[in-house]
Design a protein around this nucleic acid. Structure first.
Lengths: 207, 207
DNA sequence: ACTTGTGAAGTCATTCACAGCG
DNA sequence: CGCTGTGAATGACTTCACAAGT
């Protein structure tokens, strides 16, 4: 259906890292995978795999499957691996610290420029090679490193002004862990991960 | 439409904490809210609020709005606040530490029983009043405290066996931060928060 | 007048099921 | 025969729009 859409569905993109993890863990000499096979590896249904490939414009061989290395290349390209992508973390508390030490971001091709905090006492620390700096350095660093994304880990009450500041600096994509309802211009994409809500939803459905 | 369904849509439940946060921050003497008003406070559309209330079986007064304290009571009840709900955290690394220190879980009515790690060096530490224990104490603690939920923050490769173990202990709800595809019985509810995937999706749509 | 409550339509994503190619 | 590729069905959630209650 979508033979050359510039944009692919969010749900499809979210599965690409899973597909990639499975494909990259495969034997060197595994040349092809069937949708069934890939589906098992990524814990999804086979029909989803075929739909995703179709939406991405990827084509396999009937009776055989999809070419593994083509898939890997295509997924890398689609996810923008290889391009320089810089990120800042705002808030050097426990969560900021944990995220700075989390290697999944680097593995996915992101470079964390710095971790910014208002507390002068934290200044100068280094987490996993990432410097903790004062917020006054943020504007400069964003410009120098062409930062396009930010991860917000400040306490709830401070989150709104942090978001406002980030938007002012030209950041258009924000991943927030702050337990707060945030307002923002609609051309800014704010993804919200609310840990306590996740747990509450889980609890609700376990009764 | 749903006047007495035992179960409400996931999406609706996920909004209740937002509604609650807004309502609980209201003036003492604000007796009612309109769907419009509540929608603004929770950053959603007013039609969603009305649909949610309808699905919950909550009824307002036309021309006036919904009764604030009734809503608060109803939401608390729906989310199971007030009931004893115990949780364990598996993995006392950076993320486990951060989550132990995160007060949002307690605020939502969860009691974190302990933080379990295979590394003997971490044993005996206390994070925010939560003891770090060896995994061999997990089974006993789960039984004693009637733990029904677990948060998994171990590295990817260890995650599958941790999940298997938790399932064996009777845990039926798991919130996993491990960057790994996990298999589990279908009567066990596993919510997966993949931080690096979140960032990759965000990056994709910012191009 | 103001605001609820809800059919009906719209959007997005998953799943089915099978025709058609290799 | 095996496996892809996709129309069509289904399902979950949102949004519209308006009739009806206060």
């Amino acid at each position: 259906m979508a033979l050359r859409t510039g944009r692919v569905a969010r749900a499809t993109i979210a599965r690409l890292p899973k597909y990639l993890a499975y494909l990259e863990g495969l034997d060197e000499h595994t040349a092809t995978v069937s949708s069934q096979h890939l589906a098992d590896g990524a814990a999804v249904k086979d029909a989803i795999v075929r739909r995703d490939m179709s939406d991405l414009g990827v084509t396999g061989t009937r009776g055989v499957g999809y070419d593994v290395s083509s898939l890997i290349d295509r997924f890398h390209q689609e996810l923008g691996r290889g391009e320089a992508r810089t990120v800042v973390i705002i808030g050097a508390g426990n969560l900021g610290h944990a995220l700075a030490n989390y290697h999944g971001f680097e593995n996915a091709g992101f470079a964390i420029v710095g971790c910014y905090d208002a507390d002068p006492e934290k200044l100068g620390r280094v987490y996993n090679g990432i410097p903790v700096k004062g917020v006054e350095e943020l504007a400069g660093d964003v410009a120098i490193h062409q930062v396009a994304m930010a991860i917000v880990t400040v306490p709830g009450p401070a989150a709104q002004q942090v978001v406002d500041h980030l938007v002012e600096l030209g950041i258009r994509s924000i991943l927030s862990f702050a337990p707060a309802t945030l307002s923002h211009p609609e051309d800014v994409d704010v993804r919200h991960v609310d840990l306590s809500t996740e747990l509450q939803v889980l609890a609700y459905f376990s009764r």
